[in-house]
């Protein structure tokens, strides 16, 4: 990795960390654990569109580690990692299949995968099947917020200065 690419990716990581920090300052949307807009996912989606899955996962890993160090507890690290990487794992082929078109759909699939991954982690951590009753709330919420972040990613991709990665 050359210096230019390293710097660009570091900038993206900073951007996503800033977005994450701004979002955590907002009051929670609903009193359901795991329900949030997921604005930092916009940066992941921009990188999937502009760079490679490798770039996206690098920035995602840096953002999750830093945000856990700066704002969170050890527990939130686990949830973010499971949700974030499952989401990336789903968005990558979807984005490829759609060749970058219909971005909200990619986002929605990612949002759904994120919440499913998080809930699966909660299921393992708490060992209580009762947490699955959040699924009917979290699945549509992930789809909805994903549609929104996908749209944001598409618009941001259009207007952010285009520099080769």
């Amino acid at each position: 990795m050359n210096t230019k690419k390293l710097t660009t990716l570091a900038l993206y990581a900073t951007l996503s960390l800033a977005v994450y920090a701004a979002e955590s300052a907002l009051p929670p949307l609903a009193p359901i654990p795991g329900l949030k807009l997921g604005l930092a996912n916009i940066v992941t989606q921009i990188l999937l569109r502009r760079g490679s899955p490798k770039d996206a996962s690098l920035v995602l890993a840096v953002r999750i580690l830093l945000s856990a160090l700066l704002f969170g507890q050890a527990m939130s690290l686990l949830y973010s990692l499971a949700g974030g990487f499952l989401s990336l794992l789903v968005m990558w082929p979807v984005n490829r299949l759609l060749s970058g078109k219909y971005a909200p759909l990619t986002g929605a699939m990612g949002g759904l995968a994120h919440n499913v991954g998080q809930l699966a982690t909660a299921l393992i951590v708490t060992a209580t099947p009762g947490v699955l009753s959040y699924l009917p709330f979290l699945a549509p919420a992930g789809i909805l917020t994903g549609l929104f972040t996908g749209l944001c990613a598409q618009l941001a991709d259009r207007y952010l200065p285009r520099r080769p990665l």
Binding site: V94, L97, L98, S99, K101, Y102, L105, A108, M109, L112, L135, P136, F137, A139, P140, I143
Partner: peptide, 24 residues
Amino acid sequence: KRKITAILIGLFLSLVTAACALYL
């Protein structure tokens, strides 16, 4: 082909949402 894929994904997402709403 892309359009068909998009429609299929849209259908899948609507189905998930509908199933959750019905369950609730």
